[in-house]
Nucleic acid binder design. Structure first.
Lengths: 337, 337
DNA sequence: ATCGAAGTTCGAATCGATTCGACATCCGTC
DNA sequence: GACGGATGTCGAATCGATTCGAACTTCGAT
């Protein structure tokens, strides 16, 4: 069903149908009603491709996700869901591109095929070729996470450095003098993954400020690794009385390990972390943590992107979120042995 | 950069550029190379909208996911990721539509705006208006999960009835006489969610066949609920010696509950379920379970859909997967008290 | 030398929408 | 009753690709 068919049945020209629908020129009430009746009867909707071709915009956002081979984390999933929902609220569709790097075919299609009006990138590295590429290409984009050179781009991110530092201060206030950071995996650190780096930095600085002993130990993003991690910590650094973590996926394993080793939380070991509320509340005892507002972040990313599409030349906006730490049951004063 | 610009720079007509790219007519080697050189230089790619308009196909698949308000399960996420990846392998893009029902605006756009060549539906109910709609609209589609009237449509599904039955038989073989089914939530059962219903059916039948006592208890899809569930089971049905489950999300809570109540697995209670390998192996002790092949299912769905797009009138194909049960450590012979 | 087939290229039509300029109609005003 | 300004409608151009028919070249066979 195309616009010509509607026009024919309503006995008007195609342009009149178009104007009746868009309201960009006045159409008499009688004509408009006749057209609407025909449309309702046969269920017409403008062809998206034709409209995109003429208007030069697709009413579609591109969302670049990590390839499926790397199991998506819970947080990444949250971003996808919230971006899609926020876009739907603005009557925009979302096109997914599972791309690791710059030369992925699907990424290329998205960019050079002009399939999206704007793009949201996830899993940003400190040096990210995709960012460079998009910038050069002149396509509006927003990143969830930010690179080492954040000023020229729009992004939304969690302030891992500040949050980890706050955790350290909180623990130090409770009297802990020797604290470990349960970081994301060593691979992620190696490839320059922002959150892992910034957690490291925030940790190091806070530990220095307070004159504490700080141990940073990376850990792969899964439960089994979390279980090993706590064993190793106990063996190699028995003096540690508190840990801070940004590694959600390791939490179930961490919990199992603690139970198996008979380490009481928070009596023998305090834990303060950064995690989605869902993870923090699922931990036993419930985790004192800064709640990462996953759903809001996706919505913010869409919001910034829409602004950027409307005004591509405007100054880039950033959002660095540092949600407050929710005190739950996993932190307490040091307990002498 | 459009095809006209390429043609101008290469000194040929637009049609020649098109033929050089598609290979649908022969183009002399000299000309082809000249065109290719220009394309490489300025990085041209055909405009997706223009191509879609002319060809009548978008090279895009639509994937309808549950709205973000309902937190997506791990398995659903797996489907999304695998569908996107399988589509990318076939050089197709995926458009996401977060739609609960038939009248969602985003669903409407997908259908009547002709934004996708074919559609994959997730979270199918026994009676699903979206299926009816798509069928009526004549758009190729495949469902992950199937309705109560499965013969006319293409789908991929896990044979929950058979798998739960197998679990029951396995447990019966080990001597268990009183078995509980830890089903998905009561709400899902109420809205006619297929897996929950079919698990129920398979359970009931197997229990009947073996002359066992069977108790079906639904449980919300989260950890906290799993913990409550096992408490209630112990209180109300103390004679149960084995459980079978299809509720992955409740597993962490189930485990905590078992530990807290001091119930030893498999000595006092055997567990056999249906779960992604990732969940089964994350359980302690590792779970005897039929491993749901999430990643393959997405790939199969794309495969069926591509077939359907190529031959819309062909007979609908179905895939009912019943992966073998992996024996791990959570099942054992009944142990007399 | 001529013919036909194969190879190569071009121009024009087409897909389905939006939008501009032009024209027709209607109304109130002087 | 002529004029100007809304108001309503239409035809044609346009977006960027693909594809059909036609024309032109080349070359081997007769």
């Amino acid at each position: 069903m195309n616009i010509g068919e509607i026009a024919r049945r309503a006995g008007v020209s195609r342009s009149t149908v178009s104007y009746a629908l868009s309201g960009r020129r006045s159409v008499s009430t009688a004509t408009r009603q006749r057209i609407q009746a025909v449309i309702d009867e046969i269920g017409y909707r403008p062809n998206a491709a034709a409209r995109a071709l003429k208007e030069g915009r697709t009413r579609t956002l591109g969302l670049v996700i990590p390839p499926a081979s790397l199991r998506l984390t819970d947080m990444q999933l949250g971003f996808v869901a919230s971006v899609v929902e926020a876009a739907a609220r603005a009557d925009l569709d979302v096109l997914l591109s599972p791309s690791g790097g710059d030369h992925d075919r699907s990424f290329e299609r998205l960019i050079s095929g002009r399939r999206a009006d704007g793009i949201i990138l996830m899993e940003i590295r400190l040096e990210d070729e995709r960012v460079t590429r998009l910038r050069h290409e002149g396509i509006p984009f927003v990143t969830i996470g930010h690179t080492a050179h954040p000023h020229g781009t729009c992004w939304v991110d969690v302030d891992y450095a500040a949050l980890v530092a706050r955790c350290v201060h909180h623990l130090a206030d409770l009297g802990h003098r020797s604290i470990a950071l349960l970081n994301r995996s060593a691979e992620l650190v190696a490839v320059g993954y922002g959150p892992a780096h910034r957690a490291q930095a925030g940790f190091a600085e806070a530990v220095l400020q307070r004159g504490l002993t700080g141990i940073e130990l990376p850990c792969p993003d899964d439960a089994a690794a979390g279980e090993e991690w706590i064993e190793q910590l106990r063996d190699r650094h028995p003096g540690v009385t508190a840990i801070t973590t940004i590694n959600e996926a390791s939490l179930p394993g961490l919990q199992r390990g603690l139970e198996r080793l008979g380490i009481a939380v928070p009596r023998e070991l305090s834990i303060a972390g950064v995690a989605a509320r869902h993870w923090a509340e699922g931990f036993r005892p419930q985790l004192t943590a800064a709640d990462v507002p996953t759903l809001e972040m996706g919505a913010h990313a869409v919001e910034l992107l829409l602004e950027r599409i409307a005004a591509p030349a405007g100054p880039p906006r950033h959002l660095l979120l540092a949600p407050p730490i929710s005190l739950r049951d996993s932190t307490g004063p040091v307990h002498p042995h």
